[in-house]
Design a protein around this nucleic acid. Structure first.
Length: 248
DNA sequence: GCGACAG
DNA sequence: ATCTTGTCGC
């Protein structure tokens, strides 16, 4: 087993690898994803990669990733869906299934869900310009939530869009879609609590990798189509549940 | 010791 | 996250 020492360091609102404080164990899947060229043969298309301050082009591809499993079972189902931006039309869907033994520990979710998710990413034939994860970005006690962790491994711009809070304090955002409040943790703004739809609980948005908080919100809102969750996450969620049901 | 705690 | 029925509301 290899240990990677990573630290989520805020830089222009995003994260970069740095010397740091948080030790992440890598499974075989995590390790394999270190060699990106093996996963994505066409990774050289750097011009498609979004960095903060650069608008996502009309031909951009946004991915959503999620996990599902059966209670009492260690079998996990992962899916990554690719949607066109801004149309949100499905372009591709890949899966992975795997046994997971790492327990759920708040703050260490990426150890549990990361390996199977990355296994699904390996099946992609196209590099997404950005990934939205069903988890926190830098809104994490150590600054490295699932979206920040996997964004770093994949080296793709990533956003964390979660349904509930891990850490930080906030006030309820306004009632209109797009309304948002800061998520504060130890005197720092680590994310936004944003209303994506009227009369539903807000979501927790935070930068994962190579993107600012403001743009994270912007992309998240642009991906919303009348539901609480942005389409990439919603479609990924539907995909993993289809996969799980089909396996029973 | 107590409360909080992504999924 | 999963399990689980009905039910309230647009």
């Amino acid at each position: 087993m290899i240990l990677f020492i990573l630290r989520g360091r805020q830089e222009n609102g995003g994260t970069t690898a740095g010397k740091g404080t948080l030790a992440f164990a890598s499974s075989s899947s995590l390790g394999r994803c270190l060699s990106r060229s093996r996963i994505y043969p066409e990774y050289h298309k750097k011009d498609l990669i979004l960095h903060d301050g650069v608008k996502i082009g009309p031909a951009a591809v946004i991915a959503g990733a999620d996990i599902s499993y059966i209670r009492g079972s260690d079998l996990f189902f992962a899916a990554v869906v690719l949607l066109s931006d801004p149309d949100m039309q499905p372009l591709a869907e890949v899966h992975a299934v795997g046994r997971v033994s790492f327990p759920y520990i708040p703050g260490l979710l990426s150890f549990r869900e990361g390996p199977v998710l990355l296994k699904a990413f390996e099946n992609l034939q196209q590099v997404p310009d950005l990934v939205i994860f069903d988890g926190q970005g830098i809104a994490h006690p150590r600054g490295v939530g699932l979206a920040a962790h996997l964004g770093l491994f994949l080296d793709i711009p990533a956003i964390g869009c979660d349904k509930s809070r891990l850490c930080g304090e906030y006030r309820d955002p306004g009632p209109c879609p797009g309304d948002h409040e800061d998520l504060l943790y130890q005197g720092q703004v680590i994310g936004s609590v944003m209303r994506t739809k009227a009369r539903v609980r807000p979501v927790f948005v935070s930068p994962g990798h190579l993107i600012s908080l403001g743009r994270s919100r912007e992309v998240t809102m642009r991906c919303c189509r009348g539901y609480r969750l942005p389409e990439p996450i919603r479609q990924a969620h539907l995909a993993v549940n289809r996969l799980r049901i089909a396996s029973q």
